[in-house]
Design a protein around this nucleic acid. Sequence first.
DNA 1: TTAATTATGGACAATTATATCCACAATACA
DNA 2: TGTATTGTGGATATAATTGTCCATAATTAA
Lengths: 141, 141
Amino acid sequence: MFKIYSKGCEHVLSALSTIPIKEYENNFLAQELCKKAGVSETSTRKGLQLLVHAGILDAVPGPGGGYKFTSHPDNISLLEIIQSVDGQDVFERCIMGLPNCNHHAPCPVHDTWKKVKSELIRELQQKSLGKIMQTAQRRKK
Amino acid sequence: MFKIYSKGCEHVLSALSTIPIKEYENNFLAQELCKKAGVSETSTRKGLQLLVHAGILDAVPGPGGGYKFTSHPDNISLLEIIQSVDGQDVFERCIMGLPNCNHHAPCPVHDTWKKVKSELIRELQQKSLGKIMQTAQRRKK
DNA sequence: TTAATTATGGACAATTATATCCACAATACA
DNA sequence: TGTATTGTGGATATAATTGTCCATAATTAA
């Protein structure tokens, strides 16, 4: 079945979208976010951990800790988030699953996918987490 | 994880791609195709059945039977095949999984996805099974 | 009419993706 | 120092997807 990113990535986006964009500099707690977003906490934490590994978030253990952004959400692209959670090469793999699919030995849908992929990646790169958070806030009202 | 269509759909494409385009009018056997393509027969049959339901293939049981195309593969689009196997609405569902995502209450990536989707669908519509079969034949050599 | 061939589709099994649990590490504060 | 808080990450459990099996129906030919 068609999908752009994993459930884990979806949860992370939902969770982060509950943060008011103006409070981007504050710490936030996984528990709190997940409760607000209505997503499984333990599962979403896995995704947040991956964002820490990727350097998008800092994790601060202990009381008063939590997570915080390492830069402004406007400077974090949706593409970065997807690649951090689902793997850097998610969009590189052959969509027919052929192990040696490339320009010289393309799979039957190689060119079709190539065209669409560049458009998709451009859009995912242009879309910032900040924008996503803003849209989510508007939607809530 | 990112993917455009299911494994079942992938197998069907691989299996049908083993048919030389010039022999499109002949019957073909599931067993034979799957063996050539190196895909699981029982699993691929499920996909072929769905193509029969969709009217893309005719199923002829009994000796000398098998499947046959109801029209020239050049007139069957990749989109039709995907929708027949994975469901007519695969590309309609909200990619964030929101149940009431629409133009008036868009999910945070609604507009991004809308742009890319129309491009993707156009390409999948333009790409014919016949072309895919041809590419696969070329690749084999 | 019987036997052989081929597709069908429901039931079950295996695999993969998601979700949960739990012992632990790090930090803050009393 | 000790206790509470918060994130970590490996192990396990559940759910979804994919793959297999098998009894059956349809057709052909002997």
